[in-house]
């Protein structure tokens, strides 16, 4: 059974520590695909406020992770998504995908990020230096990126 870890948390994460946990007791791993999302500053953006739907968010993250494990033959994966107020430059999301070979690990990481952006209930509100606060609008290219993978459960 692949080792799947899914967490939603306010505090930051330690990618090195999470990588060690993912490798523990597994000798078939040839590589780990890793993505850390960062709150992108610029255009006066000070912070993002991340909201989620407790319960549904975790279950959708789990479905996405399980689907990635099945589709790409992962030995395990870890998805941690932060919530609350996160200032520009802070880490917001971590995806780690462990597999026997590089291609599966990297493709699975891409798959998980595409699905997280469009399939897990999180909402971002931008906070600007001039005091404006605006909900982020969904982007069509994110939907298109997810659509190329087909259905989540295959």
């Amino acid at each position: 059974m692949p080792c799947v870890t899914v967490r939603v948390q306010a505090e930051t994460f330690d990618a090195t520590h999470e990588t060690a946990l993912l490798l523990r007791g597994r000798d078939g791993v040839g590589g780990i695909g890793a993505f850390t999302g960062i709150v992108r500053g610029g255009d006066g953006l000070v912070a993002l406020e991340l909201e989620h739907y407790p319960g549904m968010t975790e279950s959708m993250m789990r479905r996405i992770a399980d689907s990635a494990c099945a589709r790409f033959g992962l030995t395990g994966c870890t998805v941690i998504h932060r919530v609350g107020r996160l200032e520009a430059g802070m880490p917001i999301v971590l995806v780690l995908c462990a597999a026997a070979h590089r291609k599966a690990a990297l493709e699975a990481t891409d798959f998980m990020m595409d699905w997280l952006k469009t399939g897990a209930p999180f909402w971002k509100r931008e906070e600007f230096a001039d005091g404006r606060r605006e909900w982020v609008q969904p982007r069509a290219h994110d939907d298109a990126a997810t659509a190329r993978w087909g259905a989540l459960d295959q």
Partner: peptide, 10 residues
């Protein structure tokens, strides 16, 4: 039943 905007995580 939950109502919400299209999601914008990641």
């Amino acid at each position: 039943i939950a109502f919400f905007p299209p999601v914008t995580g990641g």
